[in-house]
């Protein structure tokens, strides 16, 4: 039985297409990432799968149960952690946990094993009100509350947004460790580098899934040689390269400009010479391995070619 499966989900907000025929399958025990910028449709998809939102069309099943017809049963099996901290700020850590446990008809003691790795980090503050916790600790409390009833499937909507780098790393470590309990996890994020921490990912943009693969598989599929180019003036490089007749894609990447060519094999020197002949001195060029972000950029440019916005 597939823990999460979605077929042709369409979601419209007025004229805006938030989800455009999205299909997805997540396997048991997988840590699956939905990667995409804001507005890609990640939150809508998670809410539909989490029985919080009704899709305009399409079907979805969680653990073999339909999200519309059997939502009551699904809710016993899933944990959900929204992007915004939404626990009771005026209740203590302990009271929040006990409250959510009792709503599910269980107790903190009964499921202590599952959450102890996470909870023991905030246990010293269990008498503190949730509103007075630091961002990282709030995150841990929210995750504990989402896990308090031993869910089979866990949804996390942008759990690392606005969280400091150390807490972000903590959170990913915690998610990795949950895999040993055979919990299927669907997590969304706008940070491309976090994709590498997932077993498989779907790259999303404008309500569409552009590609679904393991991070390594995705990178291996990057078919064109990728060059990183640098000189004193990135803006000038981008302008000149975009005017270059063989250019396939040009985009800034930190201090560097990433470039792919329309031809399959090229000589980097040719590009260097072209740029230096066009008022861009001291060009540094090297071939590099693609990252997830490069894959995303190449996929979105293809996507836009299909359907010019």
């Amino acid at each position: 039985m597939t823990p999460i499966s979605a077929e042709n989900i369409v979601m419209n907000y007025g004229k805006v297409k938030a989800l455009d025929a999205v299909s997805l399958k997540v396997e048991k025990g997988e840590l699956f990432g939905l990667i995409g910028p804001d507005g890609a449709g990640k939150t809508s998809l998670i809410k539909i799968l989490g029985t919080l939102l009704l899709a305009n069309s399409g079907t979805a099943e969680i653990e073999g149960m339909d999200v519309v017809k059997q939502y009551q049963n699904i809710r016993r099996q899933i944990g959900y952690m929204p992007g915004k901290f939404s626990l009771y700020q005026d209740l203590t850590v302990e009271e929040n946990l006990n409250f959510y446990a009792s709503i599910f008809g269980t107790t903190l003691e009964e499921n202590y094993d599952l959450i102890k790795d996470i909870y023991k980090q905030i246990e010293p503050f269990k008498k503190r009100r949730a509103g007075k916790l630091s961002g990282g600790m709030k995150q841990k409390l929210a995750l504990s509350c989402a896990l308090i009833h031993k869910p089979k499937v866990l949804f996390l909507d942008e759990p690392t947004r606005g969280v400091d780098p150390v807490s972000r790393q903590d959170l990913w470590d915690m998610l990795q460790s949950l895999k040993k309990d055979n919990i299927t996890i669907l997590v969304s994020t706008a940070y491309m580098e976090e994709a590498l921490l997932c077993d498989r990912i779907s790259l999303m943009d404008h309500g569409k899934i552009l590609a679904t693969n393991s991070p390594d598989g995705l990178i291996a599929n990057f078919d064109k040689p990728l060059y990183a180019i640098r000189s004193g003036n990135s803006f000038n490089i981008i302008k000149k390269l975009k005017a270059y007749k063989h250019a396939n894609s040009v985009y800034p990447f930190g201090d560097w400009v990433h470039y792919t060519d329309k031809r399959d094999t090229i000589d980097p020197l040719e590009i260097k010479t072209y740029l230096e002949n066009n008022d861009t001195p001291n060009v540094e060029i090297k071939q590099i391995k693609a990252s997830v972000e490069d894959c995303y950029m190449s996929l979105t440019s293809k996507n836009q070619n299909y359907e010019p916005a």
Partner: peptide, 13 residues
């Protein structure tokens, strides 16, 4: 307003 409604909506309550 504080979002706890949504959190409660994913529970069987």
């Amino acid at each position: 307003e504080i979002g706890t409604m949504e959190q409660l909506n994913v529970t069987p309550m």
